[in-house]
Amino acid sequence: MNDDAPIIQASGLNKFYGRFQALKNINLNVKQGERVVVCGPSGSGKSTLIRCINALENHDAGRLVVDGIEVYEGSKQIRNLRQEVGMVFQQFNLFPHLTVLENLTIGPVRVRKLNKQDAERNARKYLERVHIPEQADKYPSQLSGGQQQRVAIARSLCMETRIMLFDEPTSALDPEMINEVLDVMVNLADTGMTMVCVTHEMGFARKVADTMVFMDQGEIVESAPPEKFFTEPETERCKAFLKQILVH
């Protein structure tokens, strides 16, 4: 694929929940290897946006192309798309009835049709990468929140996707566990993975983001490189938001 062509291409996206407009005319291009951090007050449509990218939500109008696949409701390509787009959820959503290792191998085995040995070898490799190789045979409920979220990241990695989406990955964690998850995400960013993260962790954003996107009331209000975004935001709404969030 051409390196310059965006891997995620959204133009004029609109999304309604009944009469409430969750996304208003969203235009967003993400290049391969680019790290985008999306921030904004709650209810601003950040989660909706990234849930549209892997078709967990369907947009109502506009065009969305991800990794060369046109995304629309009822597309037969959705499963192919999801194999290329990993997702990490706020609530981890690990499969509680499966061990950590089974959580990591079920996708590769059932979807990628890998054989079990290869899938397990791979899984152990990625567990190593998220620093919890010793937890392979435990059940999710036996792990701490931070460990569970790292397993969730490893689960996505095992699918060897080209894009990773993070939907407030640290919001459900106790404060002392946030850093262990962010560290893993920083390492991941260093590997050149294309990432779109919804997060309020501005320290993380400064460290890894190529592009900051600020959303409010369903719109992208501002989009800029972090140096500019944090020092001289253009809009009042963005200034107000940053002031609130950076005070603590």
Binding site: L56, R82, G86, M87, N93, I106, R110, V111
Partner: peptide, 29 residues
């Protein structure tokens, strides 16, 4: 939980696999 369906979808599992490996085992338990 709805998140279970979403997690299974997000790794590209088919409807049948979601039911067979994720939803039913938890439901029956």
């Amino acid at each position: 939980h709805k998140g279970q369906h979403e997690a299974a979808q997000s790794i590209g599992m088919s409807k049948t696999d979601q039911l067979r490996f994720i939803v039913l085992p938890q439901a029956l338990r």
